[in-house]
Amino acid sequence: MLKCRDVPAEASLALDNELSRRRTMALRFHILMCRHCHRYMRQARLLAQAWTNRGEAASEDEVNNVMQACRDNARKTNSEDV
């Protein structure tokens, strides 16, 4: 029988699709019964999504520097090919 103490580790495996079907069912059943673990699972998933998708656009200077280096390299490669 799954205990609340086991849920964070099982939830982590579930986020990576690393949980067997039997353990997935046990986790789902426990979460259905326990509001604290239900909240844990929901918010753990939310945090993972937030970290993955957090907006952190590069500055225009950074973009321009990268693009300039790419263009310079492409020009250099083309002239060497000729």
């Binding site: 656009a57 950074e62 973009v63």
Partner: peptide, 8 residues
């Protein structure tokens, strides 16, 4: 693409 992914 650079703007979106560079820092990550």
């Amino acid at each position: 693409l650079v703007r979106t992914h560079h820092r990550a």
